Simulated scan of single mutants.
Amino acid sequence: MTENSDRTEQAGDGGQTRSGFVTFVGRPNVGKSTLTNALVGEKIAITSEKPQTTRRAIRGILNRPDGQLVIVDTPGIHRPRTLLGERLNDLVEQVLGDVDVIGFCVPATEKVGPGDRRIAASLDGYGRAKKIAIVTKTDAADKDQIMERLMEVDSLREDWAAVIPLSALGDGVMGSDQLDVLADEILRLLPRGPRLYDDGIVTDESEEDRIAEIIREASLEGVRDELPHSIAVVVDDIAPREDSDLTDVYASIVVERDSQKAIIIGHKGSRLSKVGAVARADIEKLLGTRVFLKLHVKVAKEWQRDPKQLGRLGF
């Protein structure tokens, strides 16, 4: 974060524009990644109904005439059961210490619970950041639920700069205009300064990382129990094929046990084939070329608890 903040030579009049970092926090699966994608206007963070889908700090960039928002999508805060879980929580804490604005997210469809209260109280530890509360998923709630949630959230802290209900999907009681309300409010709270990234850049994620996440998202579809947490993806090679518009992509899906490997592959490779087809379509959109995607499934036993394995997988 500091490295990006030092880029004071980028375009933009520091006296007229505002720019800075914002992150959304909350329990797993409250809609943080969906909200990030909606604000950026492009899918830069994968989404899933599975909790703890996000595993890295992913930056999305929203350019406005009067400034620039750098949105840092982070994992959901949770009680860790593995070394990976501990490292993800540490990552969230690091991001929270660096950003200018923290958006605390609670879904309109669920009553505020102990986990929400604990996270809201923990924001005391990040005094430099302005705080806003966001009631998400209003498309799935009625007016009474939304009003109840707004009152519950408002009572959690006395220093909310704003309390905003919205649907990142632009549906339901609260339309897509609420996204503009949120962006305007965040921008108002950011410090004056030059843009941190050139116009036209929507993320600083590498193609390799985005491809790995696309494959992981496809792998998560339809899996159950603990398997989602055991899936990691490594891109082994990306190479344009000579004299062709085809790009070859080779990647490994990593799981923790042989039984999980069998689930990912499916009967006679049927599930792995489906994962490849879904992922390939999104990779082709990203790269702008036809793609030959070769997936390999391998086992790294208990990698979530093994420091060496975590390091190899980039955690």
Rank of each mutant, 00 (worst) to 15 (best):
D236F: 05
R224C: 01
S230D: 15
R216L: 09
D245N: 13
L220M: 12
R241Q: 14
D248K: 05
L227C: 13
V223T: 06
V223R: 00
E221H: 05
H229I: 07
D237I: 09
D237C: 02
D236W: 02
H229P: 04
I238M: 13
V233E: 06
D243G: 04
T247N: 00
I214P: 02
E221N: 06
A232K: 05
V235A: 05
E226F: 04
S230H: 14
S244R: 11
I215T: 04
V235Y: 02
I231R: 06
D243K: 08
E242I: 10
I215W: 01
E242A: 14
I215D: 04
E217A: 13
D248I: 05
V233A: 10
D225G: 01
E242C: 00
V233Y: 05
E226A: 13
E226H: 06
V234T: 13
R241S: 11
R241P: 00
D225R: 11
D243Q: 07
E221L: 11
D236L: 09
E221F: 03
I231M: 11
D237H: 14
E221W: 00
E226V: 13
I238S: 04
P228V: 14
V223A: 04
V233Q: 07
L246H: 01
T247E: 07
V234H: 09
I238L: 09
A239K: 14
I214E: 04
L246A: 02
P228R: 12
E242S: 12
R224W: 03
S244M: 07
R241M: 14
D243A: 11
G222E: 07
Y250F: 07
V249G: 02
S230A: 15
D225C: 00
E221Y: 05
E221G: 06
A239Y: 08
D245T: 12
H229E: 15
E226Q: 09
R224Y: 07
I215N: 02
V234L: 12
D248V: 06
A218Y: 06
I215K: 02
A218E: 11
E217P: 05
V223W: 01
D236V: 10
A239F: 08
I215Q: 06
E226G: 12
R224P: 00
V249Q: 01
T247P: 00
E217L: 06
R216I: 11
R216A: 08
L246S: 00
I214L: 14
D225M: 03
